[in-house]
């Protein structure tokens, strides 16, 4: 579904992603972990099409198309969804109005009929129940004055409404209490199917108890430096990232030694 090859990206003169490779197949759940500043959110932003980041090398194929050639809205149309680490507050734009526009613009992109008010309301009611979100929140301005937890739940609610092929969730679990983590995980698990995939960015193994990943990757200094299964997450939780850093340093010493 998604193939990232040798991706280099940065902002201004700062190199952030330095040759990142990752392959995600339909039906899989991947988790990316890594220390602060490793480049996790940068990866998510580059995939979603944020203009501030400049891609200097590499390619990203998504469902047979070169993702990097598409505008952000086209990527969404193709089935990519990014749950933001810091969802943006938009004053004066009602959450419902926003989601309705999003759902219908994506439908238009795909050549489907737009949902009328009745059909949209029905869909919304269904997903609201799933995400335990109430009407008053949705009638308020988008994310404005929402608590951290409400913002994250709103992201997953949007995901449920949009029903993407690939959902990238950037620290959706951070700052959530355990009930909210259950609700969010439940929402993500409902999306899981053999045709869809999920990329979770998280610092905490706890989330992975609820959304069990097929693969866990460690992103460090702009690259995936280690991949494994869910046991890797446990190991990271226990030992921290230092053991990875040590391993990398050893590797580098080895490769330096080999060159000699």
């Amino acid at each position: 579904m998604l193939t990232i090859s040798n991706l280099h990206a940065g902002i201004e003169d700062k190199k952030i992603l330095k040759g990142l490779n990752l392959e995600i197949k339909a039906g899989e759940v991947h988790a990316i972990m890594g220390p602060n500043g490793a480049g996790k959110s940068t990866l998510a932003s580059v995939l979603a099409g944020r203009q501030d980041y400049e891609v200097t090398e590499g390619s990203v194929e998504f469902l047979g198309k070169e993702l990097l050639d598409l505008a952000p809205e086209e990527r969404a149309g193709e089935g990519l969804f990014l749950g933001f680490q810091y969802p943006v507050e938009i004053p004066g734009l009602s959450t419902t109005n926003f989601i309705k526009t999003a759902v219908n613009e994506i439908r238009k992109y795909r050549g489907q009929d737009t949902l009328d008010a009745v059909a949209f309301l029905k869909l919304m009611k269904e997903k609201m129940a799933l995400m335990n979100i109430d009407q008053t929140l949705l009638s308020r301005s988008l994310n404005e004055g929402f608590s951290g937890g409400e913002k994250k739940r709103n992201e997953i609610f949007q995901m449920a409404m949009i029903d993407p092929k690939l959902a990238i969730l950037d620290e959706t679990d951070s700052g959530l209490d355990i009930d909210a983590i259950r609700i969010v995980s439940n929402g993500v698990n409902k999306l899981r199917s053999k045709d869809n995939a999920v990329l979770l960015i998280t610092h905490y193994q706890r989330l992975l108890d609820y959304i069990v990943p097929d693969f866990v990757h460690v992103l460090y200094n702009g690259r995936i430096v280690k991949s494994g299964t869910k046991e890797l997450a446990l190991e990271l939780e226990e030992k921290g990232y230092d053991f990875i850093k040590n391993e990398i340093n050893e590797d580098e010493e080895v490769s330096i030694a080999e060159k000699h």
Partner: peptide, 26 residues
């Protein structure tokens, strides 16, 4: 804000309008 709306499938021109109407709404 513009990127947020676009990343939800809303074309740039419409997204801009939505932000401006939001700004004007109060």
């Amino acid at each position: 804000g513009l990127f947020y709306l676009q990343s939800r499938g809303i074309p740039e021109k419409i997204a801009k309008s939505m932000l401006l109407v939001g700004f004007a709404s109060d």
